[in-house]
């Protein structure tokens, strides 16, 4: 009895040569294109806060940069405006003094 079982197992596990079209059939079942590599960044499901923190930092950084640029432009515009008013005021002074000077000379004559 035992011998029969043993013989059956040996027959079943005996090394056999594959059929000649085995390799062709395996290759035919493979997908035609290989899957793309490195196109998906998978965040570990356990750290969603990390993704939120990075996004928030980028958003705050961009906003702060924009505000700082506006601040610089505003300060420069203010500086230019005060300079323009200084020059205008100086030149109006010049005109006023000339008119007064001419008036004084005419009165003195």
């Amino acid at each position: 009895m035992n011998h029969e079982i043993e013989q059956a197992l040996q027959d079943a596990l005996k090394r056999k040569q594959p059929s000649p079209d085995f390799a062709a059939r395996v290759m035919a079942r493979l997908p035609e294109t290989a899957p793309a590599r490195g196109t998906v960044i998978a965040m570990p499901a356990r750290r969603p806060w990390l993704a939120i923190a990075i996004a928030a930092t980028l958003a705050i950084g961009s906003f702060a940069g924009l505000r700082y640029q506006q601040y610089r432009q505003g300060q420069e515009a203010k500086r230019q405006l005060i300079l323009a008013l200084q020059i205008t005021s100086e030149k109006l002074t010049l005109a006023q003094h000339k008119v007064v000077g001419i008036s004084e000379r005419r009165i003195d004559q």
């Binding site: 506006q70 601040y71 323009a84």
Partner: peptide, 15 residues
């Protein structure tokens, strides 16, 4: 100095 309407408005915000 070249300050158009937009630049004057910007300067005004900082006054």
């Amino acid at each position: 100095v070249n300050l158009d309407r937009n630049m004057l408005e910007l300067a005004s915000k900082f006054m």
